[in-house]
Design a binder for these strands. Structure first.
Lengths: 201, 201
DNA sequence: CATTTACTTTATTGATCGTTCAAGAAAGGA
DNA sequence: TCCTTTCTTGAACGATCAATAAAGTAAATG
């Protein structure tokens, strides 16, 4: 590899791809290295363990959220509520584009590893927080469309809940309608709050 | 083991427990057998592979749903909508009782294995269908509390979506409030439909 | 009693797991 | 030029993986 450590990045990128598609446990270090064209000696120069690599992958996801998820959605609309549903549509596209082989990479790790490694769990929490902050900003921008007593934190949790549950079912059934049905019901939930505001004001 | 195959059941029970707590991939056949006190020769007499065992475990979950999930909830109330939320409370108890180490066993498998084994995917689908049928019956019993155009199938999917997403987040954070927040929002969703009915009638 | 069927026991297979190690190559600074 | 730092190479390690083979036991069947 090149003289200023493209190798480390190459390993992370390859691992991210394979962890996402096949899971952490099912992806061997040897498999990552053969895909990346790098020897095991180099790997353990950059990372002290496979677990350490997973943490690096999860750190990268923190940085990727804006460019890969938020920016594409925000470009399509300026309306804060519409932006939320455009973000969800981005995940819908992932399901369809990769024929339901890919879900939410964070959710996958969260369920697979649980609390087996504390530093991994910390990173999944940070990723969830990062995601929810993205949503919370949108809700804040639309805060005067909602009743004054609205619990925006709980709402944000509920949106992530819907996304994760919707992706899980669509993936299991290999049928996008399970995703779409869930999102439609989330719209129902939203609309009930928005119209309630109209009554009050 | 005894003369009429308690061994097979012992293996399934042990595997169910370990798969649930540690996942399918992270649970070794040898680990299952040492917990069950059974040799590998016996194992491969009853099952042709580890994958085959997983299918048997998922078959058992189909039978266990009534006695472990539905019955305890239905005993506490006869109101169909309250029963739905009592079922969700049952999962809440699992989270707390086992200190967030256990989630939804079907959801775990669905995300871990994806579509790696077709017969496993078929069984997870059957389990999801089984679960949704339990909910759908409740909704049917309360059908005249909802507006006439209500999409009960989509509603049912949405309830499972909420359960899965809520458990995932609570488990990742080791904090029950993520579960509770999601359920409260599901109540908001329900109430908006129920009150809408009142307006219409 | 003889034979078959049902199941157990344990040793062992080859593959793959994550990880280590000793040796060296390439570049920079002195 | 020589030394140091940075990174690469590839073989090897012991452990564990799912799965098999072969021999043996016990009950049922005829």
């Amino acid at each position: 590899m090149g003289r200023k450590s493209e190798a480390r990045k190459k390993i992370i990128d390859t691992a991210r791809e394979l962890f996402w598609k096949n899971g952490y446990g099912a992806t061997g270090v040897a498999q990552i290295l053969s895909h990346a064209g790098i020897g095991s000696g180099s790997f353990y120069w950059f990372f002290k363990s496979k677990e350490d690599l997973l943490v690096a992958v999860l750190e990268q996801y923190l940085e990727l959220l804006d460019s890969m998820i938020a920016a594409p959605a925000f470009k399509k609309s300026t309306d804060p509520i519409e932006r939320i549903f455009l973000i969800l549509e981005g995940y819908r596209q992932i399901l369809e584009e990769y024929d339901f082989q890919l879900g939410c990479p964070i959710g996958n790790i969260a369920l697979e590893l649980g609390d087996k490694y504390e530093n991994v769990r910390e990173m999944t929490i940070k990723n969830f927080e990062n995601w929810r902050n993205m949503i919370k900003k949108c809700l804040h921008d639309a805060s005067n469309s909602f009743p004054p007593n609205t619990d925006f934190d709980a709402m944000t949790v509920f949106i992530l809940t819907t996304m994760e549950g919707a992706m899980m079912q669509a993936r299991a059934h290999k049928d996008i309608s399970y995703f779409d049905d869930s999102i439609v019901q989330l719209r129902v939930y939203f609309n009930s709050l928005l119209t309630k505001k109209e009554f009050d004001s």
